[in-house]
Design a protein around this nucleic acid. Structure first.
Lengths: 152, 152
DNA sequence: AAATAAAAGTCAAAGAAGGTCAAATTATTT
DNA sequence: AAATAATTTGACCTTCTTTGACTTTTATTT
Protein backbone atom coordinates (compact mmCIF):
# COMPACT_ATOMS: atom_id res chain seq x y z
CA UNK A 1 0.00 0.00 0.00
CA UNK A 2 0.87 3.66 0.19
CA UNK A 3 4.35 4.02 -1.18
CA UNK A 4 6.65 5.83 1.18
CA UNK A 5 7.85 7.93 -1.73
CA UNK A 6 4.34 9.26 -2.25
CA UNK A 7 3.96 10.06 1.41
CA UNK A 8 7.16 12.04 1.38
CA UNK A 9 6.15 13.79 -1.81
CA UNK A 10 2.86 14.93 -0.31
CA UNK A 11 4.59 15.99 2.88
CA UNK A 12 7.06 18.17 1.01
CA UNK A 13 4.41 19.70 -1.20
CA UNK A 14 2.41 20.65 1.84
CA UNK A 15 5.44 22.25 3.40
CA UNK A 16 5.98 24.20 0.23
CA UNK A 17 2.43 25.42 -0.06
CA UNK A 18 2.50 26.49 3.59
CA UNK A 19 5.71 28.38 3.06
CA UNK A 20 6.46 31.94 2.13
CA UNK A 21 8.14 32.16 -1.27
CA UNK A 22 7.25 28.60 -2.24
CA UNK A 23 10.65 27.59 -0.95
CA UNK A 24 11.63 25.19 1.79
CA UNK A 25 14.84 23.99 3.27
CA UNK A 26 15.16 20.51 4.67
CA UNK A 27 17.86 18.27 6.05
CA UNK A 28 18.10 14.99 4.29
CA UNK A 29 19.05 12.84 7.23
CA UNK A 30 16.48 14.38 9.53
CA UNK A 31 13.74 13.75 7.04
CA UNK A 32 14.91 10.19 6.46
CA UNK A 33 14.87 9.54 10.19
CA UNK A 34 11.41 11.07 10.47
CA UNK A 35 10.03 8.73 7.83
CA UNK A 36 12.20 5.87 8.90
CA UNK A 37 13.69 5.32 5.50
CA UNK A 38 17.13 5.41 3.99
CA UNK A 39 18.56 8.85 3.23
CA UNK A 40 18.96 8.00 -0.42
CA UNK A 41 15.22 7.52 -0.55
CA UNK A 42 14.93 11.25 -0.16
CA UNK A 43 17.12 11.73 -3.20
CA UNK A 44 14.91 9.32 -5.07
CA UNK A 45 11.82 11.32 -4.28
CA UNK A 46 13.55 14.52 -5.26
CA UNK A 47 14.80 13.30 -8.60
CA UNK A 48 11.56 11.60 -9.59
CA UNK A 49 9.11 14.26 -8.41
CA UNK A 50 10.86 17.53 -7.90
CA UNK A 51 13.02 17.99 -10.93
CA UNK A 52 12.86 20.78 -13.44
CA UNK A 53 10.34 19.10 -15.69
CA UNK A 54 7.98 18.89 -12.73
CA UNK A 55 8.44 22.57 -12.11
CA UNK A 56 10.86 22.58 -9.19
CA UNK A 57 14.38 23.70 -8.66
CA UNK A 58 16.78 22.22 -6.16
CA UNK A 59 19.88 23.51 -4.49
CA UNK A 60 21.90 21.85 -1.80
CA UNK A 61 24.94 22.10 0.36
CA UNK A 62 26.96 19.31 1.95
CA UNK A 63 29.02 19.28 5.08
CA UNK A 64 28.17 20.57 8.51
CA UNK A 65 25.01 22.59 8.49
CA UNK A 66 24.17 21.21 5.08
CA UNK A 67 20.69 21.45 3.62
CA UNK A 68 18.51 20.85 0.61
CA UNK A 69 16.51 23.76 -0.69
CA UNK A 70 13.46 23.07 -2.84
CA UNK A 71 11.90 25.86 -4.79
CA UNK A 72 8.69 25.71 -6.73
CA UNK A 73 8.98 27.53 -10.02
CA UNK A 74 6.23 29.95 -10.91
CA UNK A 75 4.71 30.65 -14.27
CA UNK A 76 7.16 33.37 -15.13
CA UNK A 77 9.92 30.82 -14.91
CA UNK A 78 7.97 28.94 -17.47
CA UNK A 79 8.98 30.57 -20.69
CA UNK A 80 11.37 28.27 -22.34
CA UNK A 81 9.56 25.22 -21.06
CA UNK A 82 7.94 24.83 -24.44
CA UNK A 83 11.27 24.66 -26.22
CA UNK A 84 12.58 22.21 -23.65
CA UNK A 85 9.57 19.99 -24.10
CA UNK A 86 9.89 20.00 -27.86
CA UNK A 87 13.48 18.96 -27.55
CA UNK A 88 12.54 16.20 -25.16
CA UNK A 89 9.90 14.87 -27.51
CA UNK A 90 12.08 15.20 -30.58
CA UNK A 91 11.27 12.63 -33.24
CA UNK A 92 9.88 9.99 -30.99
CA UNK A 93 8.57 9.43 -27.50
CA UNK A 94 7.27 6.44 -25.59
CA UNK A 95 3.84 6.40 -24.06
CA UNK A 96 5.37 6.35 -20.58
CA UNK A 97 7.50 9.40 -21.16
CA UNK A 98 4.67 11.21 -22.87
CA UNK A 99 2.39 10.57 -19.94
CA UNK A 100 4.92 11.89 -17.48
CA UNK A 101 5.36 14.99 -19.52
CA UNK A 102 1.63 15.60 -19.56
CA UNK A 103 1.37 15.08 -15.82
CA UNK A 104 4.15 17.56 -15.23
CA UNK A 105 2.30 20.17 -17.26
CA UNK A 106 -0.79 19.55 -15.23
CA UNK A 107 1.13 19.88 -11.99
CA UNK A 108 2.41 23.22 -13.10
CA UNK A 109 -1.08 24.35 -13.85
CA UNK A 110 -0.33 24.81 -17.53
CA UNK A 111 -3.14 22.47 -18.48
CA UNK A 112 -6.24 21.31 -16.64
CA UNK A 113 -6.99 17.82 -15.43
CA UNK A 114 -9.43 17.24 -18.24
CA UNK A 115 -6.97 18.49 -20.82
CA UNK A 116 -4.37 16.14 -19.40
CA UNK A 117 -6.81 13.28 -19.71
CA UNK A 118 -7.54 14.12 -23.30
CA UNK A 119 -3.88 14.29 -24.17
CA UNK A 120 -3.10 11.02 -22.49
CA UNK A 121 -5.95 9.36 -24.32
CA UNK A 122 -4.68 10.71 -27.62
CA UNK A 123 -1.23 9.20 -27.31
CA UNK A 124 -2.33 5.88 -25.94
CA UNK A 125 -1.03 2.76 -27.61
CA UNK A 126 -4.47 1.38 -28.23
CA UNK A 127 -5.21 4.31 -30.50
CA UNK A 128 -2.07 4.34 -32.59
CA UNK A 129 -2.22 1.14 -34.56
CA UNK A 130 0.89 1.04 -36.67
CA UNK A 131 4.20 -0.75 -36.94
CA UNK A 132 6.16 -0.45 -33.74
CA UNK A 133 9.03 1.41 -35.30
CA UNK A 134 6.95 4.44 -36.21
CA UNK A 135 4.55 4.36 -33.30
CA UNK A 136 6.71 6.61 -31.17
CA UNK A 137 7.17 8.95 -34.06
CA UNK A 138 3.44 9.34 -34.62
CA UNK A 139 2.97 9.82 -30.91
CA UNK A 140 5.61 12.52 -30.90
CA UNK A 141 3.85 14.34 -33.71
CA UNK A 142 0.49 14.20 -32.00
CA UNK A 143 1.91 15.41 -28.74
CA UNK A 144 3.78 18.26 -30.36
CA UNK A 145 0.67 19.30 -32.24
CA UNK A 146 -1.38 19.35 -29.06
CA UNK A 147 1.22 21.30 -27.15
CA UNK A 148 1.44 23.82 -29.91
CA UNK A 149 -2.31 24.24 -29.74
CA UNK A 150 -2.12 25.14 -26.07
CA UNK A 151 1.29 26.70 -25.58
CA UNK A 152 2.34 27.85 -28.98
CA UNK B 1 -19.43 -24.37 -16.41
CA UNK B 2 -18.89 -20.76 -15.32
CA UNK B 3 -15.90 -19.28 -17.05
CA UNK B 4 -13.49 -17.79 -14.58
CA UNK B 5 -13.39 -14.60 -16.64
CA UNK B 6 -17.11 -14.15 -16.13
CA UNK B 7 -16.79 -14.73 -12.42
CA UNK B 8 -14.08 -12.12 -12.14
CA UNK B 9 -16.09 -9.72 -14.26
CA UNK B 10 -19.11 -10.01 -11.99
CA UNK B 11 -16.94 -9.68 -8.91
CA UNK B 12 -15.36 -6.48 -10.14
CA UNK B 13 -18.66 -4.99 -11.19
CA UNK B 14 -20.06 -5.64 -7.76
CA UNK B 15 -17.09 -4.00 -6.15
CA UNK B 16 -17.62 -1.00 -8.37
CA UNK B 17 -21.30 -0.67 -7.65
CA UNK B 18 -20.58 -0.89 -3.93
CA UNK B 19 -17.94 1.78 -4.18
CA UNK B 20 -18.01 5.50 -3.76
CA UNK B 21 -17.23 7.27 -7.04
CA UNK B 22 -17.72 4.17 -9.17
CA UNK B 23 -14.01 3.64 -8.83
CA UNK B 24 -12.03 0.76 -7.40
CA UNK B 25 -8.40 -0.02 -6.96
CA UNK B 26 -7.17 -3.57 -7.09
CA UNK B 27 -3.87 -5.40 -7.03
CA UNK B 28 -3.47 -7.71 -9.93
CA UNK B 29 -1.52 -10.43 -8.15
CA UNK B 30 -3.78 -10.41 -5.11
CA UNK B 31 -6.84 -10.83 -7.27
CA UNK B 32 -5.21 -13.59 -9.28
CA UNK B 33 -4.31 -15.41 -6.10
CA UNK B 34 -7.85 -14.97 -4.78
CA UNK B 35 -9.33 -16.55 -7.88
CA UNK B 36 -6.47 -18.97 -8.27
CA UNK B 37 -5.74 -17.96 -11.82
CA UNK B 38 -2.78 -16.53 -13.65
CA UNK B 39 -2.18 -12.80 -13.26
CA UNK B 40 -2.47 -12.25 -16.98
CA UNK B 41 -6.00 -13.55 -16.76
CA UNK B 42 -6.85 -10.37 -14.96
CA UNK B 43 -5.51 -8.38 -17.88
CA UNK B 44 -7.62 -10.47 -20.18
CA UNK B 45 -10.76 -9.69 -18.25
CA UNK B 46 -9.90 -6.02 -18.18
CA UNK B 47 -9.20 -5.69 -21.87
CA UNK B 48 -12.21 -7.68 -22.97
CA UNK B 49 -14.79 -6.32 -20.53
CA UNK B 50 -13.59 -3.08 -19.03
CA UNK B 51 -12.37 -1.01 -21.94
CA UNK B 52 -13.94 2.27 -22.93
CA UNK B 53 -16.30 0.67 -25.40
CA UNK B 54 -17.85 -1.02 -22.39
CA UNK B 55 -17.86 2.25 -20.52
CA UNK B 56 -14.86 1.82 -18.27
CA UNK B 57 -11.56 3.56 -17.90
CA UNK B 58 -8.40 1.99 -16.56
CA UNK B 59 -5.25 3.36 -15.04
CA UNK B 60 -2.37 1.47 -13.51
CA UNK B 61 0.99 1.79 -11.87
CA UNK B 62 3.81 -0.74 -11.73
CA UNK B 63 6.51 -1.22 -9.16
CA UNK B 64 6.30 -1.36 -5.40
CA UNK B 65 2.85 -0.36 -4.24
CA UNK B 66 1.49 -0.79 -7.75
CA UNK B 67 -2.22 -1.01 -8.50
CA UNK B 68 -4.90 -1.08 -11.15
CA UNK B 69 -7.65 1.49 -10.96
CA UNK B 70 -10.94 0.83 -12.70
CA UNK B 71 -13.39 3.63 -13.20
CA UNK B 72 -16.88 3.36 -14.54
CA UNK B 73 -17.60 6.18 -16.93
CA UNK B 74 -20.64 8.28 -16.21
CA UNK B 75 -22.73 8.91 -19.18
CA UNK B 76 -25.68 10.59 -17.57
CA UNK B 77 -27.08 13.25 -19.84
CA UNK B 78 -24.37 12.77 -22.41
CA UNK B 79 -25.39 9.19 -22.79
CA UNK B 80 -26.86 9.74 -26.24
CA UNK B 81 -23.85 11.58 -27.48
CA UNK B 82 -21.59 8.79 -26.45
CA UNK B 83 -23.50 6.20 -28.42
CA UNK B 84 -23.76 8.41 -31.45
CA UNK B 85 -20.07 9.08 -31.37
CA UNK B 86 -19.14 5.45 -31.24
CA UNK B 87 -21.44 4.71 -34.14
CA UNK B 88 -20.53 7.76 -36.17
CA UNK B 89 -16.81 7.47 -35.74
CA UNK B 90 -16.83 3.71 -35.96
CA UNK B 91 -13.73 2.34 -37.65
CA UNK B 92 -12.63 5.40 -39.53
CA UNK B 93 -13.23 9.07 -39.90
CA UNK B 94 -11.84 11.77 -42.12
CA UNK B 95 -10.21 14.86 -40.75
CA UNK B 96 -13.10 16.97 -42.04
CA UNK B 97 -15.75 14.91 -40.34
CA UNK B 98 -13.72 14.71 -37.19
CA UNK B 99 -13.38 18.45 -37.02
CA UNK B 100 -17.08 18.95 -37.53
CA UNK B 101 -17.84 16.57 -34.74
CA UNK B 102 -15.50 18.39 -32.43
CA UNK B 103 -17.00 21.74 -33.31
CA UNK B 104 -20.50 20.47 -32.68
CA UNK B 105 -19.47 19.18 -29.28
CA UNK B 106 -18.01 22.53 -28.47
CA UNK B 107 -21.16 24.26 -29.55
CA UNK B 108 -23.18 22.05 -27.30
CA UNK B 109 -20.95 22.95 -24.42
CA UNK B 110 -19.69 19.44 -23.92
CA UNK B 111 -16.09 20.53 -24.37
CA UNK B 112 -14.33 23.85 -24.01
CA UNK B 113 -12.67 25.86 -26.74
CA UNK B 114 -9.21 24.86 -25.60
CA UNK B 115 -10.21 21.22 -25.45
CA UNK B 116 -11.55 21.47 -28.96
CA UNK B 117 -8.26 22.96 -30.08
CA UNK B 118 -6.32 20.14 -28.50
CA UNK B 119 -8.52 17.51 -30.08
CA UNK B 120 -8.28 19.04 -33.51
CA UNK B 121 -4.52 19.20 -33.19
CA UNK B 122 -4.41 15.54 -32.22
CA UNK B 123 -6.27 14.28 -35.27
CA UNK B 124 -4.56 16.51 -37.76
CA UNK B 125 -3.06 14.88 -40.81
CA UNK B 126 0.38 16.24 -40.15
CA UNK B 127 0.57 14.21 -36.97
CA UNK B 128 -0.60 10.88 -38.26
CA UNK B 129 2.09 9.77 -40.63
CA UNK B 130 1.00 6.44 -42.00
CA UNK B 131 -0.36 4.82 -45.14
CA UNK B 132 -3.53 6.52 -46.27
CA UNK B 133 -5.71 3.50 -45.86
CA UNK B 134 -5.25 3.27 -42.11
CA UNK B 135 -4.93 6.95 -41.41
CA UNK B 136 -8.64 7.38 -40.87
CA UNK B 137 -8.71 4.37 -38.65
CA UNK B 138 -5.99 5.71 -36.40
CA UNK B 139 -7.75 9.04 -36.32
CA UNK B 140 -10.96 7.33 -35.31
CA UNK B 141 -9.22 5.53 -32.48
CA UNK B 142 -7.61 8.66 -31.18
CA UNK B 143 -10.85 10.56 -31.30
CA UNK B 144 -12.78 7.81 -29.55
CA UNK B 145 -10.15 7.58 -26.86
CA UNK B 146 -10.22 11.30 -26.23
CA UNK B 147 -13.98 11.46 -26.06
CA UNK B 148 -14.14 8.54 -23.69
CA UNK B 149 -11.64 10.32 -21.48
CA UNK B 150 -13.82 13.38 -21.27
CA UNK B 151 -17.06 11.56 -20.69
CA UNK B 152 -15.56 9.72 -17.72
C1' DA C 1 47.35 22.62 8.47
C1' DA C 2 45.72 18.20 9.37
C1' DA C 3 42.36 15.40 11.21
C1' DT C 4 37.75 14.57 12.18
C1' DA C 5 32.91 14.94 11.87
C1' DA C 6 28.80 16.13 9.50
C1' DA C 7 26.36 16.53 5.99
C1' DA C 8 24.70 15.34 1.04
C1' DG C 9 25.48 12.48 -3.51
C1' DT C 10 25.88 8.28 -6.44
C1' DC C 11 25.05 3.98 -8.14
C1' DA C 12 23.85 -0.58 -8.55
C1' DA C 13 21.44 -4.59 -6.82
C1' DA C 14 17.26 -6.54 -5.03
C1' DG C 15 12.38 -6.46 -4.63
C1' DA C 16 7.67 -5.45 -6.00
C1' DA C 17 4.44 -4.71 -8.83
C1' DG C 18 1.98 -4.74 -13.55
C1' DG C 19 2.32 -5.78 -19.06
C1' DT C 20 2.75 -8.54 -23.32
C1' DC C 21 2.43 -12.13 -26.41
C1' DA C 22 1.73 -16.42 -28.28
C1' DA C 23 0.74 -21.31 -27.73
C1' DA C 24 -2.65 -24.47 -25.99
C1' DT C 25 -7.17 -25.33 -24.82
C1' DT C 26 -12.14 -24.93 -24.78
C1' DA C 27 -16.66 -23.07 -26.65
C1' DT C 28 -19.46 -21.65 -30.21
C1' DT C 29 -20.95 -21.27 -35.05
C1' DT C 30 -21.58 -22.80 -39.46
C1' DA D 1 -17.49 -32.24 -38.20
C1' DA D 2 -14.84 -28.36 -39.30
C1' DA D 3 -13.93 -23.75 -38.74
C1' DT D 4 -13.81 -19.90 -35.98
C1' DA D 5 -13.81 -17.38 -31.75
C1' DA D 6 -13.01 -16.95 -26.91
C1' DT D 7 -10.42 -18.24 -22.92
C1' DT D 8 -6.58 -19.94 -20.21
C1' DT D 9 -1.76 -20.35 -19.11
C1' DG D 10 2.92 -19.43 -18.72
C1' DA D 11 7.33 -17.63 -19.97
C1' DC D 12 9.51 -13.43 -20.38
C1' DC D 13 9.55 -8.08 -20.19
C1' DT D 14 9.33 -3.33 -18.34
C1' DT D 15 8.71 -0.05 -14.85
C1' DC D 16 9.04 1.76 -10.30
C1' DT D 17 10.64 1.58 -5.51
C1' DT D 18 13.63 0.47 -1.74
C1' DT D 19 18.04 -0.30 0.38
C1' DG D 20 22.75 0.03 1.37
C1' DA D 21 27.60 0.40 0.57
C1' DC D 22 30.71 3.70 -0.91
C1' DT D 23 32.06 8.65 -2.33
C1' DT D 24 32.48 13.63 -2.15
C1' DT D 25 32.10 18.03 -0.13
C1' DT D 26 32.14 21.29 3.63
C1' DA D 27 32.61 22.78 8.37
C1' DT D 28 34.67 22.33 12.74
C1' DT D 29 38.34 20.84 15.97
C1' DT D 30 42.81 20.00 17.32
Amino acid sequence: MARISDVIEVFLKELISDSKNRTIEIQRNELAKYFDCSPSQINYVLTTRFDYVHGYYIESQRGGGGYIKIKKLTMDHRDGIYAILLKEIANGITKMKGNKLIVSLQERGVISEREAKIMKAAIDDTAIISPLNIKDEIRANILKNMLAAVLG
